[in-house]
């Protein structure tokens, strides 16, 4: 096994499993649609709340796609093979997380213009939303991977994963939605974007190692 062959096989698996990602995206749209229907459909409510709605829906959709991240690899033994491959496990984990991120976030971004139109988000704010998603969501995947590796051996681990991981998502959600709201009220928001980026970078360093430790503990 080499890093390149691992990358290729992961891409293939993601491609074969494209319907899972598609389902996560549909779920994302469903959650967004719930808000106008369930709370209030007027532009006065939706426009200020749009950032929060989209971010909360994105967090839930990401959690869904992350939950099964290592499940199949765990049950068929490929995770074990990664551990004994002699390659750096943190690096392999990082490759896997990055691919997952690309596979989920790009379709999400493609749908963003449509959703921001539905939630009456102005075009200037739309770009702030896109930037927060691009620099904020890596940390969601990186943190989620730790939780996913920890719960991989538990049969019904989904709810536990949410309980475990959601508190860690709070700062990201807070800073991202605050950045959008600050931009909406015309104030400078670059500091908040920097904070989002800092969290993502922090977990870029921490998460691969923690995930690798968790995988090694789970595969036994």
């Amino acid at each position: 096994m080499t890093y390149t062959s691992f990358l290729k096989s992961e891409c293939l698996v993601l491609w074969r499993r494209k319907y899972d990602i598609f389902n996560a995206l549909l779920f994302f749209i469903m959650v967004v649609v719930l808000f106008p229907l369930g709370v209030n459909a007027s532009p006065e409510f939706l426009a200020p709340a749009a950032g929060g709605i989209i971010w909360c829906a994105a967090v839930l959709a990401i959690l869904m796609s992350i939950e099964s991240m290592f499940k199949e690899d765990y049950s068929d033994g490929s995770l074990e093979q990664l551990v004994v491959s002699g390659l750096s496990l943190p690096l392999l984990v990082l490759i896997k997380i990055s691919l997952q991120w690309v596979a989920v976030i790009f379709p999400l971004l493609v749908m963003m213009p449509l959703l921001s139109e539905m939630l009456y988000l102005s075009s200037g704010i739309f770009w702030v939303l896109v930037v927060t998603l691009i620099i904020g969501t890596p940390s969601l995947f990186l943190i989620g991977a730790i939780g996913s590796a920890l719960t991989v051996s538990i049969k019904q681990g989904g709810v536990l994963l949410m309980l475990l991981i959601l508190p860690f998502y709070l700062p990201v959600i807070i800073f991202a939605t605050s950045a959008i709201q600050t931009a909406q009220s015309g104030l400078p928001y670059s500091g908040l974007l920097a904070l989002l980026l800092a969290i993502s970078l922090l977990f870029l360093v921490v998460s691969p190692f923690m995930t690798a430790i968790s995988i090694k503990a789970s595969v036994n």
């Binding site: 074969r16 499993r17 199949e72 049950s75 068929d76 033994g77 490929s78």
Partner: peptide, 10 residues
């Protein structure tokens, strides 16, 4: 090992 280490989807 006991597990085959081959991926179902491939």
């Amino acid at each position: 090992g006991h597990l085959s280490g081959v991926k179902n989807m491939l």
